[in-house]
Design a protein around this nucleic acid. Structure first.
Length: 489
DNA sequence: AACGGGTTCAACCGCTGACCA
DNA sequence: TTGGTCAGCGGTTGAACCCGT
């Protein structure tokens, strides 16, 4: 069988060479000339490969423009270099990416953005082109189904890393240590290597501890349960047969049914209805043109597939429309207690979103508005807010992968967690972070709390539902689903 | 089996920066 | 300092392939 294949390939190559010879003679448009010789374009034949390999063996890599001169290969140097780098050089790893590699790519992309060549340095045997193609395919697929590009694990790790100020060159050391480990060790090593890095800090502000967020992420990503999404689910969670693949996530099978499809659909539908638009999961005729849509349970991060996508920013990063860049809380007179050490600016933005939406729906009462008037101390505190927002703005680097909306902002369900805390048995909400969280929320006025939380409960359904799932199991999610369904805006 | 739409991936293009004369 | 050459990088393209109907 193998021989037959090789024979077939040889025949194909010969045919191709003949074709190319005729092209060489007859079709100037198919290539460029170099020194009077028409340079060939298009797919490489194995004969050409052999010539190139032979050349490199004799002359080494480099001097690609002299390949044609010395070997007679009718290819430009660029083409030769690319062919060698991507296909012919030794130690190239062929085949699909492993789960570990996928996880690593996600993490590296979260850190580096579209620096494919740099990323390739951390993936021995893989080429930048391969990684680029993989990532673009991946993001495209996620874009289509409205999922975040980063798994909760990656978000968690990124966030943890941002919170810790760890060794500045650790990333390099950490990853090379990581790559020297076997695959079993990689799963445990990845977070460590990330934690050993401070390179994130070039992109991510040193935020004050956002405990609610931490809690959410802890529940979502770092829980031992996090690695084990249920493989058998109640049938109603396989809603519409849609699949929600998640990248990596410590060996989670991709292309599995996402356990929250059902709930997610409900929540996003509710929000979409509130905006008078369709849910991204509602593949109705107007779907493609609906903006802003709630994708990832997150406003305005979704762009219709018909729009051209710029992927320089890693995931969900569409400029100037999301919560963080503009911190409008200072102008709207609606602020949480900024004196809280946990305040990040993100929270206020969420509240602002809530207020904006609520206002547009005329749900704001005079009473609630007045209850939000700033006290002198709050005004003083607003300087703190200014500091934070300024700090944050300073870190918004349009080139940075953590520019407009980073993966740190993919978990805006901070507020959502509170309402669940209220419902949780104390034993299940007993971390120090939860205490901090509660203290943050105690500063809130009930009116705004009610209004914003009722909205924000479903601001990140898949994220926090995942957390909820891990903590409470499918029955609880069913309850939660009912809870969501009962929310009226 | 045929078709059409979606996906994958190899290869190309244009730009940039390093290097050198 | 300037201009030319080269290697490398990231974005884009299009042919091949896959898959559902």
């Amino acid at each position: 069988m193998e021989e037959v294949n090789q024979m077939t390939k040889r025949i194909e190559d010969e045919v191709l060479l003949k074709d190319q010879t005729s092209l060489h003679l007859n079709d100037e448009s198919n290539g460029r000339t170099s020194g009077g010789v028409l340079l060939k374009k298009g797919p490489w034949t194995s004969a050409e490969d052999a010539i190139l390999v032979d050349y490199v063996r004799k002359h080494g890599e480099g001097n690609w423009n002299s390949v044609q001169k010395y070997s007679g290969l009718s290819r430009c140097g660029k083409s030769c270099r690319l062919r060698w780098a991507n296909h012919l050089r030794p130690n190239l790893k062929k085949g699909a990416f492993t789960a570990e590699e996928e996880q690593l790519i996600a993490e590296l992309h979260a850190k580096m953005g579209n620096k494919w060549a740099r990323m390739a340095a951390y993936l021995p045997g893989r080429t930048d082109n391969e990684i680029k193609n993989y990532w673009n395919t991946w993001t495209k697929r996620h874009q289509r189904i409205g999922l975040p590009h980063y798994s909760p694990d990656v978000c968690l790790q990124s966030r943890q890393q941002a919170q810790r100020g760890v060794g500045i060159n650790g990333i390099e050391r950490g990853y090379f240590e990581l790559m020297s480990k076997n695959n079993d060790e990689i799963q445990n090593a990845i977070p460590n290597s990330l934690n050993a890095s401070q390179e994130f800090l070039s992109y991510v502000p040193k935020l004050p501890d956002i405990s609610p967020n931490s809690i959410l992420l802890e529940g979502y990503g770092s829980s031992p349960n996090c690695n084990i999404l249920p493989t058998t689910l109640p049938s109603h969670y396989h809603h519409g047969g849609s699949t929600m693949p998640f990248l990596g996530s410590n060996g989670i099978n991709r292309n599995r049914s996402y356990p929250f499809d059902h709930v997610w659909n409900n929540a996003s539908d509710m929000i979409a209805q509130s905006f008078g638009v369709h849910s991204p999961l509602d593949h109705g005729p107007s779907f493609q043109s609906s903006l802003p849509l709630l994708s990832n349970g997150y406003f305005s991060t979704y762009k219709p597939a018909s729009e051209s996508l710029k992927l320089e920013l890693p995931s969900l990063q569409y400029p100037a429309t999301d919560f963080v860049i503009e911190s409008p809380t200072q102008t709207c007179g609606l602020e949480p207690d900024c004196s809280s050490p946990h305040y990040s600016g993100l929270l206020a933005d969420l509240i602002h979103q809530a207020k904006t939406i609520s206002s547009s729906k005329n749900h704001y009462s005079h009473k609630s508005s007045s209850s939000l008037a700033m006290t002198p101390s709050e005004k003083a505190d607003s300087s703190t807010l200014n500091v934070y927002s300024t700090e944050w703005d300073d870190y918004i680097d349009p080139v940075s992968p953590f520019g407009a909306t980073s993966i740190l902002n993919e978990f805006p369900a901070v507020c959502a967690y509170k309402s669940f805390l209220d419902e949780l048995p104390p034993a299940q909400a007993s971390s120090d972070d939860i205490v901090k969280l509660q203290s943050v929320y105690q500063d809130w006025t009930p009116n705004i709390e009610d209004q914003t939380l009722s909205m924000l409960d479903i601001a990140w359904p898949d994220g926090f539902l995942a957390s909820y799932w891990f903590d409470h199991g499918s029955d609880a999610v069913t309850t939660l689903n009912n809870e969501l369904a009962s929310k009226v805006w």
